[in-house]
Design a protein around this nucleic acid. Structure first.
Lengths: 342, 342
DNA sequence: CCGGTTTGCACAATCGTTTCAGTTTTTTGC
DNA sequence: GCAAAAAACTGAAACGATTGTGCAAACCGG
């Protein structure tokens, strides 16, 4: 059932039917109702391909899912972010186009998406410091929003980010307030921009209390359980081991916990742990009572916000670069307690 | 740069240019080369919207990402499956359309996708027993491939699945061979079809050795670390506790491990654990040496295979329902050992 | 050299919408 | 009652490709 057929059944021109369904004013109310009713009855849905060609808009936004050529790590954040963004697209009649691509071919994909006219805008994931994608997107003139900021990029662009620095600053301060002074950082890989910011927050908190950050207490690796375990194990074996950890993710934190318990120590009593909790659907921090004390910020919410921002930008690119800095909550769980007395 | 402009620059008709670029035979080789060179030089990419309208094909496949209305659990499998499938789409010039939708609205989304002509086929995730989506897709006449099978559906349809029953049968047999007789199952939620099959494999292995499956040794819940921990804790506190566990996922297994170690027992010596390993990118089972003994089957591979199957089906639906049953490898890790002597 | 085939290209219709620019009909003001 | 304005509707041209059909020019064997 297409527009022409529907128009014939109604003894009207395609023009009128189209206008009626799209809410144009120049159509009689009774006619409009007749048309709407018929459309529903015949289950008419305008052909997406034709609309796109006629309007010149893709009514779709692109997400590029980089598959690292070397490490096979897929970003665990991705699914939740997509879920949040997707809700917004669905609610606004937009489609979401997902491109899976080797991470060295991303620029080409953006150009392709643009010149094929497949999308009206894109969301950029996993921003790195000095991320070259930002410049190439600006050059292309394709509306975009990044999830995370890139230190080292001077030009202005639209982004949604968590205040990672402040989150880690607060987490570290909280541990300091509990009397801890040997506080370790189990960070993600520090080519990611957010990891740098997190380390800065951690260091700043220590420095502000006149504690010099100890490089031996700072680890940086993939945010997996295993590397969290290894880092914590190594540090706990030191002569002057840490009494508290700040971990970059739920998984890292689980690894740290295992190391602590493996040494026969008790989490939250002998050694404290704070994690950064992205509230991933399948990695929940307990049910009623949080297992870990955590700085918490929902990735799904970030997805929603980024999607809304992008749609606004598509509707009116002139409203210039938009920014949104989300603050993480500090929630109290069972993994922190006062520093043990010597 | 569109077809007409390119044709003008070449002093040719759009027809010829189009035919040259699409490999039709009736164009002179030197002309073709001239055209191809010009296309590359002007960076011409045919407009996706126009192609779709003209050919009637969407050159896109849909993935529906159900967001549970009640539990907020997003499927951790999803990202890896998508990554695998996406590779295939990209290689074949197809786009991937992702719809995020409340799980009670899925049927409507399929109908919408079909009548709008937005996709040529879809992949169905997270199949449940008696899954109604299969019938509605068959009715719609939209090509589809499911990831997982649905017991209780009598009609034939295309699917890709892991031999879950055999995987759990082998895992259980392996533990039996090591002398274990009190073997527990920490399963996923048993409204998912694969979970049922897994339990069947587990039970069958026990029964074949004349051991009656003990309901007290069978848990079924979300496949999270916490529920794995709780189930194992409960079972280890029994009078006659299990000496081995079969866990449904990496996360469950991590929970089981924590329960074991929490009781001061040693994994692989006092209590054995086998997991099912989906080889998720961010939940790797160790680096060189696997932590857990596991039945392993790559979700990413499953995604690739399902995507290839769907594209084949779109090209020629008549080749009828296709099936692919993947076998899981049994890989030896450090989490299993002979049953301890009483 | 000539009729018929092959080769290489172009014309024009088509896909299903939107939308500009009319055109017809109705309403309005006086 | 009539011109002007407003309301309601329509024709036709886009949008940018693909593709069936037609038509010259080149080529062929005899």
């Amino acid at each position: 059932m297409n527009l022409k057929e529907l128009a014939q059944k109604l003894n009207l021109s395609p023009t009128t039917v189209s206008r009626a369904l799209n809410g144009y004013p120049e159509v009689n109310d009774v006619t409009r109702e007749r048309i709407v009713a018929a459309a529903k009855r015949y289950n008419y849905r305008p052909n997406a391909r034709a609309i796109r060609l006629a309007t010149g808009r893709a009514m779709a936004v692109g997400h590029v899912f980089p598959v690292a050529t070397k490490s096979e790590i897929t970003n665990p954040i991705f699914a939740d972010f997509i879920a949040g963004a997707g809700e917004i697209y669905t609610a606004n009649g937009y489609d979401m186009l997902l491109s899976v691509v080797a991470d060295d071919a991303e620029a080409a994909v953006y150009r392709d998406l643009k010149s094929r006219g497949a999308v009206d805008g894109v969301i950029v994931h996993a921003v790195r410091t000095f991320d070259p994608r930002i410049a190439s997107l600006q050059e292309l003139g394709l509306p975009f929003v990044t999830h995370g900021r890139a230190t080292g990029i001077e030009s202005d662009y639209s982004w949604v980010d968590v205040n990672n620095r402040r989150a880690f600053l607060r987490a570290t301060e909280f541990l300091l307030d509990l009397g801890h002074s040997r506080i370790a950082l189990v960070n993600g890989k520090e080519d990611m921009d957010f990891a740098i910011r997190r380390r800065t927050g951690y260091s700043d908190a220590l420095t502000a209390r006149a504690i010099a950050p100890d490089p031996a207490l700072m680890a940086s690796d993939e945010m997996t359980e295993l590397s969290g375990f290894r880092a914590a194990n190594r540090m706990l074996a030191m002569e002057n081991p840490p009494t508290a950890f700040v971990a970059a993710s739920m998984l890292s934190g689980m690894g740290v916990r295992r190391a602590i318990e493996g040494q026969g120590q008790k989490l939250g009593r002998d050694v404290s742990v704070i994690i950064f909790d992205d509230e991933l659907g399948y990695l929940r921090n307990g049910d009623e009572v949080p297992i870990f004390t955590a700085t918490r910020s929902s990735v799904r919410d970030a997805g929603r916000i980024a999607a809304e921002m992008l749609l606004a930008l598509i509707a009116d690119p002139a409203q210039g670069p938009l920014h949104r800095l989300l603050e993480a909550d500090l929630i109290l769980g069972q993994s922190t307690g006062p520093a043990p007395r010597k």
